[in-house]
């Protein structure tokens, strides 16, 4: 009964939720976007950033998200209601309170995240840095801050998924996502697009 009233109040106040897929870059956010697309959800993307060696199946990004920390006018986010948008963890705190967010937060072992990011930086001709342990500590702190902030937000409903566990049990996690979103997603289709071969940076 309480959940029903809470959902009713949220729907009244905010309208349809914006489904956000988040996490650190290289933590499985694109895979989750692909699952949601296969399940029947509409993605809020512009396909400007094309698939490459690092993300052979595409990035599923919306270019304007990258400017979220600089833009004053964020009202365009209203167009993402009822759709799925990818927003990395660094930018979550920029989201305005005017909307309700169903957030799917991807976790992955930080050694794997950093190894994957390092390869991507090299391919892009960017400096990598030589202190992976420091970067790991910074990311750990960043994730603590973001998650603690999320705990205090009444307009966020959050589910956390572990990348490796999704790879190992795609069907179970597709079901978890469907139950979390409360929509009629096609779980079989969602599980079918999880490609274990793309889990390339393992501990």
């Amino acid at each position: 009964m309480i959940t029903f009233l809470k959902n009713f109040y949220r729907a009244k106040k905010f309208g349809q939720p914006i489904v956000v897929v988040s996490g650190l870059p290289r933590s499985g956010t694109s895979m989750t976007m692909k699952m949601l697309e296969a399940g029947g959800m509409t993605l809020f993307t512009d396909n400007i950033r094309e698939a490459d060696e690092d993300n052979p199946k595409g990035y599923y990004e919306f270019e304007r998200v990258k400017n979220l920390h600089k833009e004053k006018d964020r009202s365009w986010l209203g167009d993402a209601r009822g759709k799925v948008i990818k927003i990395i963890s660094e930018l979550l705190m920029e989201l305005p309170d005017a909307y309700f967010y169903k957030l799917i937060f991807m976790d992955r072992h930080l050694d794997e995240v950093i190894a994957s990011q390092n390869k991507m930086l090299i391919r892009r001709g960017e400096p990598v840095g030589d202190d992976n342990e420091r970067m790991k500590a910074l990311f750990e702190k960043h994730l603590r801050v973001v998650k603690s902030w999320l705990d205090r937000q009444s307009n966020f409903d959050v589910i956390r998924l572990n990348y490796k566990e999704v790879i190992d049990n795609p069907f179970d996690h597709a079901e978890r996502i469907r139950n979390f979103l409360g929509t009629g997603l096609d779980v079989k289709q969602m599980a079918g697009v999880v490609d274990e071969k793309l889990y390339r940076n393992r501990r």
Partner: peptide, 17 residues
């Protein structure tokens, strides 16, 4: 400081501008 370091890395990866 640490925020700047993370931002620099994310810019390098093409996830923020």
């Amino acid at each position: 400081d640490s925020e700047e370091e993370i931002k620099k890395r994310l810019k390098g990866l093409g996830y923020i501008s």
